[in-house]
C-alpha cells in the first residue's frame, strides 16, 4: 500500500517539470504542453487525496479540470494559429507586441 504522500511527491515533481518547461523553452506550443503537464500533476494529487479520504469529490474536480483543459486547448491553439498567421513565428520572445 503506497501512502498518499508518495503520490503527492510524484505530483510535485511533475508540476515542477512543467514549471521548468514554461520557463526554459521558448517554443509557444511546448510552453502550452508544459501547462497541460502541470494540470495533470494537480489532477494526480486530487485523485490520490480522494482515494485517501475515501470520497469521490476529488474525482469530480478532476472531471472539471479536464473540461476546462479542453476548452483552454481549443481557444489557446486558436490564438497560436492566429499568431502564426500574422507573425510567422512560434517563438515566445519574438511575440513582443504587448511587451513593455
Amino acid at each position: 500500500m503506497v501512502p498518499p504522500s508518495y503520490f503527492m511527491g510524484l505530483s510535485a515533481v511533475l508540476f515542477c517539470i512543467g514549471v521548468l518547461g514554461v520557463l526554459l523553452r521558448r517554443n509557444i506550443i511546448i510552453i502550452f504542453m508544459s501547462i497541460e503537464l502541470m494540470l495533470n500533476a494537480v489532477n494526480l494529487a486530487f485523485v490520490a487525496l480522494s482515494r485517501a479520504w475515501g470520497n469521490v469529490d476529488g474525482q469530480a474536480i478532476v472531471f472539471f479540470v479536464m473540461t476546462v483543459a479542453a476548452a483552454e486547448a481549443a481557444v489557446g491553439l486558436g490564438i497560436i494559429l492566429m499568431i502564426f498567421r500574422n507573425r510567422e513565428t512560434v517563438n515566445a520572445d519574438e511575440i513582443n507586441l504587448m511587451r513593455w
Binding site: 498518499p4 504522500s5 511527491g9 505530483s11 479520504w53
Partner: peptide, 21 residues
C-alpha cells in the same frame, strides 16, 4: 523550480495521515 520542488517535497512528505485512510 529547484526551490519549489524542495518546498513541495518537504511539505507533502510530512503530511499527517488522512482521517479516513
Amino acid at each position: 523550480s529547484a526551490a519549489l520542488i524542495a518546498e513541495l517535497l518537504v511539505f507533502v512528505l510530512h503530511l499527517p495521515p488522512p482521517v479516513g485512510h
